[in-house]
Every structure is written in structure tokens, then in C-alpha cells.
């Protein structure tokens, strides 16, 4: 009887892990700040993400009422660039795994 052949299990290399991490969607989160003007948050969201006024206003109101809002998502590098732009404008923002 022929010995049963088991196909070797595919193992993940470190390179695979890095690729998976790169491809995983990340979120750009804006947090409420008690002194930042609501109109300024709307301006920054329009300026950085190109949102129209109603979209930017809806996200700003979510930040204001819920304390945070996910304003964009995508690969980590792009999320990080957006957060750096938000930081340059003085908004409280973080990058988070989805």
C-alpha cells in the first residue's frame, strides 16, 4: 500500500506577512477636540479629502456627537499620510486597523 502523501502545508513567509499587513485596510479616525471650531473641521475635511460640504459636515457632526469618526480608509501608508495632513492642520487624528 502506497504511503499516503500529504501535500506540504503552505507556510506564510515573513514577506507574506508584510504584504498582508500592507493590504489590510486601515482607517483614518478624527477625534473630537473641545476648542477646535466645527466650521474649521469641515474646512479641513474638504481641503484634505476633497469632500463636498454635506459630506464634510456629516462627518464633523459625527465627530462632535460621538467623539470620533472614520473619515477615510485604505492602505496604511495612505492613511498615515492623511493623518499627517490632519495633524498639520491641528486636528486630533489617528490611524487604526479596521
Amino acid at each position: 500500500m502506497a504511503e499516503r502523501v500529504i501535500a506540504p502545508e503552505r507556510t506564510r513567509s515573513p514577506a507574506d506577512g508584510r504584504r498582508a499587513e500592507r493590504d489590510q485596510p486601515w482607517e483614518v479616525v478624527v477625534w473630537n477636540d473641545p476648542v477646535t471650531l466645527m466650521s474649521y473641521v469641515v474646512f479641513v475635511l474638504r481641503r484634505i479629502f476633497g469632500y463636498d460640504q454635506p459630506t464634510a459636515t456629516r462627518l464633523m457632526l459625527q465627530v462632535h456627537t460621538e467623539g470620533r469618526a472614520v473619515v477615510a480608509s485604505g492602505p496604511r501608508e495612505r492613511a498615515e499620510i492623511a493623518v499627517a495632513q490632519l495633524h498639520a492642520h491641528g486636528l486630533q487624528a489617528t490611524v487604526a486597523r479596521r
Binding site: 477636540d33 477646535t36 474649521y40
Partner: peptide
């Protein structure tokens, strides 16, 4: 606009404004 926001959040931190 950016500069004014920086000044306001730095001042708010200094005088302890932490919540709405």
C-alpha cells in the same frame, strides 16, 4: 487658519480645557 488653530489648542491645553 492652521496657525490660529494651533494657538487655540495649545492655549486650551494650558488652561485645562479637556471636554465639550
Amino acid at each position: 487658519l492652521r496657525a490660529l488653530n494651533l494657538l487655540r489648542i495649545a492655549l486650551a491645553g494650558e488652561i485645562g480645557i479637556a471636554a465639550d
